[in-house]
Amino acid sequence: MWNIIKAQNYQMKKDIMVVLLAICGLVLLIVPNVLDSSGDMDGLTGSVYLLQTSELLLLIFSIICLLLTCRICGWDYMDKTINYEILSGHSRKEVYWGRIVTSGIWSVVFCYVLGLLPLFIFTIVNGWGVNMNMGNVMFRYALMIFPILRMVCEFALLTFLLRNCYGAMVIGWTLFALSMIGVMFVEELTDTEWKLQLAYTNMSMLFDFSHGRLGYVGGEDVMIYETAVDLQTVLGTIGVSLLVSAVCLALGYLYYKKSDQR
């Protein structure tokens, strides 16, 4: 299995899509913030940057998981090079798990680098700021690994079922968008929070900084945002992510193990 992971890493390093994803992600995260500040960069602290980009970050994380997972699990289906792994003597288990692990590693590393690098840059330049508690925010970032891996498993299942990288990207994105819109619709109607159970991901709960109060810090009125994560959210994030991931992985493996390869 490790040889499959190494081979996939070799291939991904040569994939132009990875470069474009990195560049586009950084540009989308940094440039609008710089333009928004209208030349006054001093106010763009780490916490302000995060407040301004939290929703965009969720979108980017989702796109990263989608594109990388579908690419790693599905691209080799389209030109049948995945067949070489079975023909070389790797078991179906090794081929499947090799790609899942590779997808997980690339998605997590990519999300965290894109999610944290601009944050660190702005924090180093202008400081963290007073709007949010850094420790709590970092804890939220750490929890993010669970929904990221959940999305990887969901997109991997889709890709193994469809055996088509681009088809999985389109359908995966559609399902993701529909589930997020659907959950918002249900929440409006029923006045409950069902995101954890119904949506493709509960990332939006972890990066929800909409609850704040006015505070007085350093002689100025500032908005102080609630960043502590309650136990229910922590357990729900971890529990639902692990459960959904396990189901997706099991279904994907059962299908792949028994299916003929074209």
Binding site: N3, I4, K6, A7, Y10, Q11, Y84, E85, S88, H90
Partner: peptide
């Protein structure tokens, strides 16, 4: 071939 070499160990 390099990719196959890595994959085959």
């Amino acid at each position: 071939l390099e990719k196959q070499r890595i994959q085959k160990g």
